[in-house]
Simulated assay, not measured.
Amino acid sequence: MNVRLTAISALLACTILSSAALGDEPVKKRVKAGDGLSIAYDVRGKGDTALVFLHGWGGDREYWKNQADAFATDYTVVTVDQAGHGASGKDRETWTVEALAGDVESVVKDLKLKRVVLIGHSMGGSVALLAAKKLPGTVVAVVGVDTLQDAEFKRPEDVVKSLTAGLEKDFKGTVGGMAAGLLPEKCDAKLKDWIGEKAASRDPAVQIALIKDLFALDQKKAFKEAGVPVRCVNSAGGFPFFTPTAVETNKKYADFDAVTIADVGHYPMLEKPKEFNEKLGDVLKGLAKK
């Protein structure tokens, strides 16, 4: 009787996991990073190629709510709460982009993924480049989302100092101003509030340390050492803080190309999800032919 019940339980568990794998409900998982910090992530879909989605500074895996199920019919989809964000751990002594890349490595190895495309928004794009270096032969491409626009771009030191000083003095107020500045005026007000409130709820010490480290990152080196094709789905611009995508410049450091979306700010996957998904789908199809 016990054997039969065990078999039935196992069958039910497999059925539940199979249903989740098809994108109905995500399988929620956790893995310990190299320093023991808990990293939360969701898994959907099935496919030989896994798409690992990495949110940007101040975000979480919910940033990909319009993509996770949409791509789960053709791919294994993994959405990660990066350390210091969402449901992942926040007790880390030193906060660096390199450490976040190590967390991605832990997730990929935990799932025993064999073929991975890392998709990173904003800061997540830099994390993806560093993670690709750690996972040679497993990561086959990096796709940036409104990020990695210019490997040679260096933010003026006075701008960096002003921003970090503002964050240290009034974190919530400065973050709110940043969110407003990174979206067009005509952007949906509820979306603007949602993004701003999410970022403002993060631990200021964690976020300030990460943004300082991100601004100091050697992007040219990161592009070169990733060792994989790099593609971007970026904003076509026209709003404050916009950096044009310098395709020819980036080609000096990697196999690079980009497509853009008009009339969006820094969050194209949230602002125009249908168009974004179409463009991302085309990019992925192009990468599959390489």
Rank of each mutant, 00 (worst) to 15 (best):
L130H: 05
V139S: 02
L118T: 08
V160K: 14
C187I: 13
G144W: 08
G177M: 02
R155M: 15
A189D: 04
V127H: 01
K172F: 08
D146S: 11
A189G: 01
A128K: 00
K172C: 01
A180P: 00
P136D: 13
G166M: 04
G144Y: 02
G124I: 02
T174E: 06
G125N: 09
V145E: 06
K186H: 12
V160E: 08
K134G: 10
K190G: 01
A141P: 09
L182E: 08
L118H: 05
V142G: 00
G120H: 03
G181V: 12
K172S: 05
V160T: 10
G125C: 08
G124P: 00
D150V: 06
M123C: 03
L182V: 06
S126L: 10
E157I: 09
L183D: 00
P184T: 10
V160L: 11
T147W: 04
K169M: 07
L167H: 01
K172H: 08
K133C: 05
C187V: 13
K134L: 15
A128G: 00
A141E: 10
E157A: 15
F153Q: 07
A180E: 15
K186I: 10
G125R: 05
S162Q: 10
D170N: 14
V160P: 02
G124Q: 03
G181N: 11
V127G: 11
K190M: 01
L118Y: 06
K192C: 03
S126Q: 11
A141H: 07
K172E: 14
E197N: 15
L182P: 02
F153I: 03
E197K: 15
D193I: 10
K186W: 00
E185T: 12
G125V: 05
L148S: 01
V140L: 13
Q149W: 04
A165I: 12
D170M: 14
M178N: 05
C187L: 12
L148Y: 00
I119M: 11
A165C: 05
K192I: 08
G166H: 03
T164R: 13
S126I: 15
K154R: 14
L148C: 00
M123E: 07
G176Y: 08
